[in-house]
C-alpha cells in the first residue's frame, strides 16, 4: 500500500468536461513513489483524458494534481500552496508542484513528468540518436547559454553535449537500438519505435513516467520484452511509472497498483490481484446486468 503511505502524485477530485460531455468525473487516486501503477478501463472510460490532464495537454475543469519531489508532503502544506496563487514551491524539500496550474512543457521540464503517446510521436525525420538528444533540451539549452555560448563554442557547452551524448548512448544500449542510432527514427519497425519513445521520455530525467498503451500493437514476445524493460527502468532508476494498458497480461504481470475507471468514474483501486477478482471490474469488462452488480456487491461473492 505504498500509494497511500508514500504518494508521488495525488489526484484530487479531478473532473474534465468537454461541453456537455463529462469525460472524467470527480476522480481521486494516488500514484505511489516507486510503484508501477496501471490505469485501466474499457474503451472510452477517460483514461487518456486523465493522462492529458496530468501532463498538461488538457486544463482540467476542476480538481487538484499535486506532485511531490523527494519526499511526502503533509496535506497542510499542499493546501497552503493551493490557497496561494503559486504553481510550485521554490527550494523546499520536498518540492511540491500543482500540475493543473502548469503549462505542458513546464510539467515536463520542471515537475519532471514524461510521457509517451498512444499513437507513437517520434521525430520521424531525425535520427534515433537525435531524438534522444532533443529530449535533453532543457539541460543543453542552459549549458549553451541560451545558444549564445554554444554559438561561440564555449567548452562548458561541449562538455554538456558530450554528457548528453553519453546518456543517449546508454539508453540506446538499454532498449537495444544502438546499432540503429544514425538511422531516421521513422525507419524503425513498430516495436522498436515504441521502445525508442520510452527511451526518449527517460532521457528527460523524469520522476514519473506516463505510458499511454505501451504494449499496443506488440506481439507476445515484444510485450514480454517491454515488461522486462519497464521493470528494469523501475529497478535501475527508481522512476515511478503510470501506465494505461489494455493488455491484461502486461497489467497483471507488472503492476503494483491498479486503478480501474469506467465512464470517468473510479470503480476499483487496489493491488492487481484483488482488482482482478473485483465483481465491479469484471462487470465493467464483460458487461453484466445492473441488478446483478448490485446483488454481487451487496451480498458479496456467493
Amino acid at each position: 500500500m505504498r500509494w497511500l503511505a508514500q504518494p508521488l502524485l495525488t489526484v484530487d477530485h479531478l473532473s474534465m468536461r468537454f461541453g456537455g460531455l463529462v469525460a472524467v468525473n470527480d476522480l481521486s487516486f494516488t500514484v505511489g513513489r516507486g510503484d508501477i501503477t496501471a490505469l485501466i478501463g474499457p474503451n472510452g472510460a477517460g483514461k487518456t483524458t486523465v493522462f492529458n490532464c496530468i501532463t498538461g495537454f488538457y486544463k482540467p475543469t476542476s480538481g487538484r494534481l499535486a506532485l511531490a519531489h523527494g519526499g511526502t508532503v503533509a496535506p497542510k502544506a499542499v493546501d497552503a500552496l493551493t490557497r496561494s496563487d503559486q504553481r510550485r514551491t521554490h527550494g523546499a524539500t520536498p518540492e511540491l508542484f500543482l500540475l493543473e496550474r502548469m503549462p505542458d512543457h513546464a510539467i515536463a521540464s520542471e515537475a519532471r513528468v514524461a510521457r509517451t503517446f498512444q499513437n507513437i510521436r517520434l521525430f520521424a525525420g531525425m535520427t534515433v540518436l537525435e531524438n534522444l538528444i532533443v529530449a535533453q533540451h532543457k539541460t543543453l539549452m542552459k549549458a549553451s547559454g541560451f545558444s549564445l555560448g554554444g554559438l561561440l563554442g564555449l567548452s562548458k557547452y561541449r562538455a554538456a553535449e558530450r554528457k548528453a551524448f553519453e546518456l543517449a548512448k546508454a539508453w540506446l544500449e538499454v532498449v537495444g537500438l544502438i546499432d540503429r542510432a544514425d538511422d531516421p527514427a521513422g525507419d524503425l519497425p513498430y516495436g522498436a519505435q515504441r521502445r525508442l519513445e520510452i527511451a526518449r521520455a527517460m532521457c528527460t530525467n523524469p520522476v514519473l513516467l506516463c505510458l499511454d498503451e505501451p504494449a499496443a500493437g506488440l506481439n507476445n514476445k515484444e510485450s514480454a520484452e517491454l515488461t522486462r524493460l519497464l521493470r528494469g527502468i523501475r529497478e535501475q532508476t527508481g522512476v515511478s511509472i503510470l501506465l494505461i494498458e489494455h493488455d491484461m497480461s502486461v497489467v497483471m504481470d507488472i503492476s503494483d497498483h491498479v486503478v480501474v475507471i469506467e465512464y470517468g468514474v473510479k470503480i476499483a483501486d487496489d493491488t492487481a490481484a484483488s482488482v482482478k477478482n473485483d465483481p465491479k471490474v469484471i462487470a465493467a469488462y464483460l458487461g453484466v446486468d445492473d441488478d446483478e452488480v448490485a446483488l454481487s456487491t451487496g451480498g458479496g461473492p456467493p
Binding site: 501532463t55 498538461g56 495537454f57 505542458d104 512543457h105 513546464a106 515536463a108 521540464s109 520542471e110 514524461a114 510521457r115 503517446f117 510521436r121 517520434l122 521525430f123 520521424a124 525525420g125 531525425m126 537525435e130 538528444i133 532533443v134 529530449a135 533540451h137 532543457k138 539549452m141 526518449r200 521520455a201 528527460t204
Partner: peptide
C-alpha cells in the same frame, strides 16, 4: 534541434519540456 523537432512533431516537443 528544437526547431527541427518542432517541424517533425510539435506535441511531442511539448511533452519533452520544449
Amino acid at each position: 534541434r528544437a526547431w527541427e523537432a518542432m517541424r517533425e512533431d510539435e506535441i511531442a516537443c511539448r511533452s519533452l519540456g520544449i
